[in-house]
Design a protein around this nucleic acid. Sequence first.
DNA 1: CTGGGGACGGGGCCC
DNA 2: TGGGCCCCGTCCCCA
Length: 267
Amino acid sequence: PRSAPGPHQADVCWLTELTPDLALFSVPCSELTFQQPYDQAHLLAAIPPPEVLNPTASLPTLIWDSLLAPQAQPISWASLLPQEIPKAGELTSLSDEDSGKGSQPPSPPSPAPSSFSSTSASSLEAEGYAAFPGLGQLPKQLTGLSVAKDPQSRKAFNCKYCNKEYVSLGALKMHIRSHTLPCVCSTCGKAFSRPWLLQGHVRTHTGEKPFSCPHCSRAFADRSNLRAHLQTHSDVKKYQCKTCSRTFSRMSLLHKHQESGCSGGPR
DNA sequence: CTGGGGACGGGGCCC
DNA sequence: TGGGCCCCGTCCCCA
């Protein structure tokens, strides 16, 4: 059941990315329309456990491997069924977290829940299914963590928060940091996914600006901002309007220019 | 409205 | 495999 009208992109992404190899899987998920040969085992393998769908619940580190879903055998699934289909808002809340670009710190800035106290490689497998009651009784190949021996089959790692797919565990773990935000500023408590992001943030407290412009006296705390600033010293900017040939120092400025309606003539 | 600065995020590469 | 770093990019805010 969808509590709010209208499609939500995260809903669609959740399902389409989850089952890239299953073309018959129909979206949007609110309709939960399945076509043969999609069977119940496939469906269950594609639905995250309730604790994943509930944003208020603890979030154990868990990898969902959709590619292994078709291997599911007809076993007793009744005990694994969620009590109810999650609402659209519940489904999307975690994806929204991933896409959040707000400058406000997470509220409250909190460390990862205790149930996934570590995201280290060695802990991923153990934590994942210890925290998912019922799956511990499943065959190994159903846990989604055993690497397929068949070289023809592509191994993929899916983020359990947003279900993005990665070809390597390392890439997935890096991505997961954007959800768990393990690097916390000791000054203000704001959390970041990577240490160097925290370093950059700390400079906003210290005022340190190690990146100096060679053309003027300005200095910047962020290298990207220096790079953008350097564009202001250039007569020909990096981003050019294809209509009027006017150049801009930033992509965003070009977009603004185009959205405001380019007159078409050179300026 | 436009240009620019500040802060921040993600993927990829290298060691 | 993990950490550091780079590059590219976005969003917000302000002059």
